[in-house]
Amino acid sequence: MSTDQRKPLPFVANFAAGAIAGVSEILTFYPLDVVKTRMQLETGKSTQGLVGTLRSIVKEEGAGRLYRGLVPPLLLEAPKRAVKFAANDYWGKTYLNVTGESKMTQSLSILTGCSAGATESFVVVPFELVKIKLQDKTSTYKGPMDVVKQVVRKDGLLGLYAGMESTFWRHLWWNGGYFGCIFQVRELLPKRESQQGVLMNNFISGAVGGFAGTVLNTPFDVVKSRIQGAERVPGVIPKYNWTYPALVTIFREEGAAALYKGFVPKVLRLAPGGGVLLLVVEFTLGVFRQALGPPYI
């Protein structure tokens, strides 16, 4: 049966594939996320780069600090990545039905990715908030539950959704770039029949998509880290509150380069990480197709 004729896999298969891929990616690249957050929380002119920040963390706080805050994103990765790929599958089918197109186009791929990212953002905010609080160098929290307790005690349940708006924009732009590039790169790469060739194409297109998504969303990630890392003071308007005004503030006070703080560790994680995500997702979906048999293969 050809690719165009086979039946789409059920939702649970896409959900499980995304979950497995997400956990695989974070276990591989998490220390780079800690370094990225530290660089983004540093205001003013950067004094250390990737290597300097990494060396400083290990020297002053120990190598174990590179996995500080791992539990929230690890708990989050399964639902987050599952929602990402399941939502991308859902929105792709929806837009194809609405537009009457028979197959995905470049513009529909970008729109689908942005919609999947917007959907994903509603799931991730509390986990991201806890992770940022734990990764901060000045953090005195004992662990994830201590963060949750203190934030809820101080700001109520809605305090766990600080940075919701900036997280929305971060995920919208990353997913739009990621899935849009995957579509384009797949079209440009030579078609391969072997399983190894198909997997290599998936890794390359995912890596390129991860790079493009990182270029697009890093300024929004910087703002998100600043908003979620700041302590709220009653009666005082936060310096970083809304995304686009915060982008202007950082640009005016610290220069354009500050909007890309943490870009190197972020791209070193998300470019190959994007490849790993797509590779594991497609491999896992292939396993489901083999297990379910016709008409899925």
Rank of each mutant, 00 (worst) to 15 (best):
A256M: 14
Q290P: 00
L247K: 05
D136M: 02
T105N: 09
K103M: 04
M164A: 15
M39G: 01
R269G: 11
Q40P: 09
L75R: 07
Q48N: 10
G274H: 05
G235E: 07
Y95T: 12
R186G: 15
E165A: 12
Y141F: 15
V276N: 06
E128D: 15
Q184T: 15
R192F: 04
P79K: 04
N202V: 08
T105L: 04
G52K: 01
L158M: 13
F29T: 14
L259R: 09
G64H: 05
W174V: 12
V280W: 07
K266E: 13
Y161C: 05
Y240P: 07
T138M: 00
D155P: 04
A118H: 02
I132H: 13
G52C: 04
G18Y: 01
A16P: 01
Q40H: 08
P144T: 11
R226V: 01
G235K: 07
G49Q: 11
V208W: 02
A86N: 00
V233G: 12
F283K: 14
A258D: 02
N217T: 15
R252S: 13
L54V: 03
G69K: 04
I237F: 11
F15L: 06
I20Y: 00
A16C: 09
V287H: 06
K93I: 05
V51L: 13
G69V: 12
P190C: 04
D89L: 00
S24H: 00
K266L: 05
R252H: 11
C181M: 14
Q106H: 13
K224S: 13
R186L: 14
T218N: 14
G113W: 02
R269T: 13
V35A: 07
P144D: 02
I57V: 09
K154L: 02
A86L: 07
I250W: 05
L157Y: 14
L278K: 12
G262W: 08
F127C: 06
I26N: 00
R65M: 04
S56F: 06
A291R: 15
S166C: 10
F122K: 06
G18C: 07
V264L: 14
P245R: 03
V233F: 11
E282G: 06
V58S: 10
